[in-house]
Structure formats: structure tokens, C-alpha cells
């Protein structure tokens, strides 16, 4: 008698748990907990790799603008100081343009005289075949050697020709470069004084 009673009690408890009002809540919490632990684990594995990947990408990008670069320092004012073996040869910083399809990430390199060394489109989500032409050399080469006052589209009095069919993308790049130049040149000048 006692044994039977015990069995019935156990079964009853499990049923109670599965059909209890709190069960959906407990189950969902459990799923979320498992998911959180799993994601923490995946994050801990990939974190170092992602950081290393970004680091090599930055070095590669900086070398495209300053081929003679040996070393670089990231400043707390959010620009890179670029060094050839010993000397400071220029500065680099990123700008974000508001393009037709989203953000356009641009890396801008300037020399000690604050003339543009070169610019590089790091990433964009513009229309393939049209807006993506901003990454091609015929467009970015136009920025080489420009001073701040020339960074504007030709129709607005600058020295950069817009790409046919991609005026919004072209303007986004030019505007972002100009605005970032104004900000960063000011910062760099203040610092050297």
C-alpha cells in the first residue's frame, strides 16, 4: 500500500509540473539560460579572432594609403599617427558617409601639411554596379593631394567629379570626407600647439 501510494505521488508531481501554470515560464527561462551560456561560449572563442582580424585589416588599409608605413599609433582623439621607421609621416582617420543604401566607411590619410594623401572606401552597402563605383580608383584618386577647400563636388565649386548615376553616393563620400577633415585637422593642430 505504501509503495503504491509513493509511485502515485511521484507521477502526480511530474504531471503537476508539466501542466502547472508556472511550467511555461520555467521552460522559457531554461531555454533562454541555455542560449545565453552557449552564446557566451561562442563569443569567448571568436572574440580574439575578430579583434585580430580587425587589426590586420587596419594595417592593410593604412599601408594602402602610406606604403612606407612601419608603425602606427592610435590616438585617444580617434585618429592614427602614422610613422615610417622613425618619423611621423601623416595621420589617418575614418569617416562615415550617409549613402544611398546605408553607411559608407571611409579611411582618410593626410600628410603633415594637411593635404590628402589618399582615401579608401573600407565598406559600403551601395547599389552594386552604380554606387559601388565609389570604391574604384578613378573616383578615389581624385582626392589625392587635395586641400580641405577643394574637397567638394565640381558643381559646388570643388575638384571632385561625381559619378554619373551615383550622385548621392558621390556626394555622401565628399561630404563625409570634408566634415571629418575639418574636425580632425582642428584636433591635430590644437594638439601640436
Amino acid at each position: 500500500m505504501l509503495k503504491v501510494n509513493n509511485k502515485n505521488n511521484k507521477k502526480f508531481n511530474i504531471d503537476k509540473l508539466l501542466k502547472g501554470k508556472a511550467y511555461p515560464l520555467i521552460f522559457l527561462s531554461l531555454i533562454v539560460l541555455v542560449s545565453v551560456v552557449l552564446l557566451m561560449y561562442v563569443n569567448s572563442i571568436t572574440k580574439a579572432k575578430i579583434a585580430a582580424e580587425k587589426e590586420t585589416q587596419i594595417i592593410e588599409q593604412l599601408k594602402l594609403i602610406f606604403p612606407e608605413m612601419k608603425d602606427y599609433k592610435y590616438n585617444k582623439d580617434e585618429y592614427y599617427e602614422v610613422y615610417s621607421s622613425e618619423d611621423l609621416i601623416g595621420y589617418a582617420f575614418t569617416a562615415i558617409g550617409k549613402g544611398y543604401g546605408g553607411d559608407i566607411n571611409i579611411l582618410i590619410g593626410i600628410n603633415n601639411n594637411f593635404l590628402i594623401e589618399s582615401i579608401n572606401i573600407i565598406s559600403n552597402t551601395e547599389t552594386p554596379g552604380l554606387g559601388t563605383k565609389i570604391t574604384e580608383n578613378f573616383f578615389t584618386d581624385q582626392f589625392k593631394g587635395l586641400a580641405l577647400e577643394d574637397v567638394n563636388l565640381t558643381k559646388n565649386g570643388g575638384k571632385v567629379d561625381a559619378i554619373t548615376g551615383a550622385t548621392i553616393s558621390s556626394k555622401a563620400v565628399v561630404d563625409a570626407v570634408r566634415e571629418e577633415l575639418i574636425k580632425k585637422i582642428e584636433l591635430i593642430k590644437n594638439k601640436s600647439n
Binding site: 531555454i31 542560449s35 552564446l39
Partner: peptide
């Protein structure tokens, strides 16, 4: 929750 977990894993692995 299950789907979002897999998408997050995928996005971290791709990155």
C-alpha cells in the same frame, strides 16, 4: 530564442 541564438552564432563565426 532558438532561431536568434543560431543567427548570433552564425554572425560571430562569419565575422
Amino acid at each position: 530564442v532558438v532561431i536568434a541564438s543560431f543567427v548570433t552564432i552564425l554572425s560571430l563565426v562569419f565575422e
